[in-house]
């Protein structure tokens, strides 16, 4: 069984001076990040440039010791890429190219995703309610749910890490969601923002 080293572990190794760790991180998230950038800018060369700038920023931040370990690595990298994409469009004073039809919403690309104070409070309440009810789940379901939602791992990675088949991991996720819904109903929790 191949056990995959977690991002946080690789980040730690890189900060301690292991250059192979950053290579592993770049290769691991290469296609995901490239796909994300390409979906926004629609240009192969520009995607390549933004990908490069993103990881240069990542490298600088890690070397400076300014990375906050509490956050997840990939969402953090995505956020950097997202900000660089916005910077690019602002600088070139143009909107992103998009080939779709009527259902296109410009704010999905350039919207301000910060919440106002009231919504932030509601979000925090929802998050804390969710954490409480997740703890009610059986341990195996909790494990899969945390890996999938909070650590952003694929089912293949979950399967490698837990030593169960992908189908079992999928099944556990499904039951985790079903049980979560039941718990939400039973405790009359409102999970909307």
């Amino acid at each position: 069984m191949v056990v995959q080293v977690e991002d946080s572990q690789l980040v730690k190794q890189y900060i301690q001076g292991d250059e192979r760790a950053i290579e592993a991180l770049i290769n691991r998230h290469n296609s995901r990040l490239t796909g994300f950038i390409y979906s926004k800018v629609g240009d192969r060369e520009l995607t390549e440039d933004i990908f490069q700038d993103t990881f240069m920023k990542v490298i600088r931040t890690l070397k400076k010791g300014a990375y906050n370990e509490e956050g997840k690595f990939l969402p953090w990298v995505m956020r950097i890429a997202h900000n660089l994409i916005i910077d690019y469009f602002r600088k070139h004073n143009r909107m992103p190219m998009y080939n779709s039809k009527e259902s296109y919403n410009i704010f999905s690309l350039l919207g301000d995703d910060k919440l106002d104070a009231e919504r932030q409070l509601i979000k925090e309440q929802i998050d804390s309610d969710l954490i409480k009810i997740i703890k009610e789940l059986p341990e195996d379901q909790q494990e899969v749910l945390e890996m999938r939602i909070y650590k952003d791992m694929s089912f293949k990675e979950i399967s490698n890490n837990t030593g169960v088949s992908i189908n079992t991991a999928l099944g556990r996720m499904r039951y985790a969601l079903i049980n979560l819904r039941k718990l939400v109903e039973a405790n009359s929790i409102v999970l909307t923002n």
Binding site: E23, I26, N27, N30, S31, L33, T34, G35, Y38, R44, T47, E48, F51, Q52
Partner: peptide, 9 residues
């Protein structure tokens, strides 16, 4: 699959 070029890496 879209991926960054080996030169970029």
């Amino acid at each position: 699959i879209v991926k960054a070029k080996p030169e970029t890496i």
